[in-house]
Amino acid sequence: MKPLLERHGDRLIGVLSPILLLIVWELLVRFHWISAQFFPAPSSIAVTFVKLARTGDLWLNVGVSLRRLLLGFIIGGVPGLLLGIVMGLSRPIRLFIEPLIASTYPIPKSALLPLVLLIFGLGESSKIAMVAMGVFYPVIMNTVTGVLQISKIYFDVGTNFGAGRWKTFRTIALPGAAPFIITGVKLGIGMGLILISIAEMVGADSGLGYMIWNAWQLMDVETMYVGLFMIAFLGFVFTLLLDEIERWLLPWRAA
């Protein structure tokens, strides 16, 4: 028993605190120390969760949000990555584009939602555009930094061994910047989750953001909590997934 505890001790402690919080929360509601109207007991949230899962409403909303996240992630992330590498490799292009990035980055993306709705309408594209914007900035900025921090000697090696533009990109710039790119992707996904929730609360009829907003209008607090937990869960799963991808893509990083 003891070796098991030693081996998994850290992880056990990590699991312990959320469980403890849920137990305390449950007890507080049961003893009427906090209002079930605002803080429904975890057990009743679980009941609502099962109910929504059975009717399929929950999965419909999760699916819609995931699709928007994925499309926005690709539409914002891929150009961010490519442009970031080009900017890292070419000084004139970097000097040309950098002011555009620097001046638009500080605008809160959420403040752009009305404009995005105006341009893209109430359909899918406005939600996807919001996610894409959120992903684009962290990816491009981290990619540029990632390419710039690659030691010059590696580019000399590439030149010496006759690497052309494409091979320099493939064998030096991309792998060399990869640790920074992954950090950018992680930040981008976090930003995407924030923006998808906001975008779906306004003028949407599906998705987790809509589910939470709609639950507020119906005063269906349990459903609201189910939505919140689902978003938290998605964020958690993405983090685990990206950590795993990172380990797989970057075996060369010192442990």
Partner: peptide
Amino acid sequence: RPLNAMVFQGDSIFPWMN
């Protein structure tokens, strides 16, 4: 054959390749 190959001063092998 390539004209030249260089052995550089200091660390020049790619950390991301085995």
